[in-house]
């Protein structure tokens, strides 16, 4: 945490200003972590203490006879309380989180596969194949980014109803097999940065477009493909409106929808259990982020690329 002041950048205010800056940085980090920290803290508390006005990150445990937090018995009691809360959420009768988890996983994997493959194919067509009207059609791709979801809500629902897909997971992942505007945009930018000499060499070696795509462009584009896959994974995992519109039976619920139902059911679930359920929903996304931070940053920052 402690950062030695470095004086390599000239013209900066020294001592006091730098310390004020560091304090501000710490404050910003803490402020933005606050909701997550308390989500985790509440998830390991007994129900009564999660709904109390006393500000305390750690609960008083064991409930009947609280002991000092320095004693080893305290941490054993905390572990027991945590495991009781999480077990109640995971295997309790109030909700079926293992099923929600499985559904989210199925939808997530199918969406990521579909989005990455189909967007890469389309992006190749928008970058390395030359055809009349290509750039005009690409503008159309970008324009679709501006369509508000609310406009598509009713007609898409009716479309999937006509196709008999309401109440199945299909509407949640099928559209991703037809590419996404932002993914195509991101991959096209990357494909354009690959030197043309490479596919000319491939062509002289007798490679078709398909061969060039598979053997030259794709292997060189792993970071961009990873960024697209990760952004799609997070978007699918977090989607709330899609499941709300298209699913109607509990066996089909994804984690987001399941969590919302769990939170709002009959007069409210105790806070400690709701927060434990939230942690279960959040954890996979955070784990993915920690493991693959670099690709995320590149993908999101890529939005700002000049035209």
């Amino acid at each position: 945490m402690n950062q030695r002041p470095n004086n390599s950048r000239g013209g900066m205010p020294g001592g006091a200003g730098r310390r004020a800056g560091s304090a501000l940085i710490l404050l910003a980090a803490l402020a933005y972590l606050t909701p997550l920290i308390w989500m985790i803290a509440l998830s390991v508390k007994p129900a009564a203490q999660a709904g109390s006005a006393t500000i305390a990150l750690l609960p008083r445990l064991p409930e009947e006879a609280p002991v000092s937090k320095a004693s080893p018995g305290y941490w054993a009691a905390l572990a027991a309380q945590a495991s009781a809360n999480y077990r109640e959420v995971w295997s309790g009768a109030a909700a079926d989180f293992p099923t929600y988890f499985r559904n989210s996983l199925i939808v997530g994997i199918l969406s990521v596969l579909g989005m990455t493959v189909s967007s890469a194919v389309a992006a190749y067509g928008f970058s390395r194949v030359r055809w009349p009207g290509r750039d005009a059609v690409f503008v159309l791709v970008l324009l679709t980014l501006m369509i508000p979801q609310a406009v598509l809500m009713s007609p898409q629902f009716l479309l999937f109803k006509q196709l008999g897909m309401i109440g199945s997971l299909l509407p949640l992942w099928l559209p991703s097999w037809f590419g996404g505007a932002f993914s195509i945009f991101l991959l096209r930018q990357f494909f354009l940065s690959i030197p043309n000499e490479l596919d000319e060499a491939a062509r002289i070696d007798g490679c078709s477009h398909l061969g060039t795509f598979l053997r030259v462009v794709l292997p060189l584009s792993k970071p961009a493909l990873a960024a697209v896959a990760l952004l799609q994974a997070v978007a699918t995992w977090n989607d709330f409106l899609g499941p709300l519109l298209f699913l109607n039976r509990e066996e089909q619920y994804t984690l987001s929808l399941g969590l919302q139902m769990y939170q709002s059911q009959h007069g409210g679930t105790p806070w400690n259990l709701v927060m434990a359920a939230s942690c279960i929903v959040v954890l996979p996304v955070l784990g993915l982020y920690v493991l693959t931070r670099r690709f995320f940053v590149e993908g999101v920052a890529g939005q700002g690329l000049k035209e």
Partner: peptide, 30 residues
């Protein structure tokens, strides 16, 4: 990259084009 023609180009972007018509254009028209 002068290889290619309209047909080749359309073939490559066909996943997007089909999705655009079915999941965006048709719902918007409806």
């Amino acid at each position: 990259t002068s290889r290619g023609s309209l047909a080749t180009g359309l073939a490559w972007i066909s996943p997007w084009a089909v999705g655009f018509v079915v999941f965006l254009l048709a719902p918007i028209a409806m």
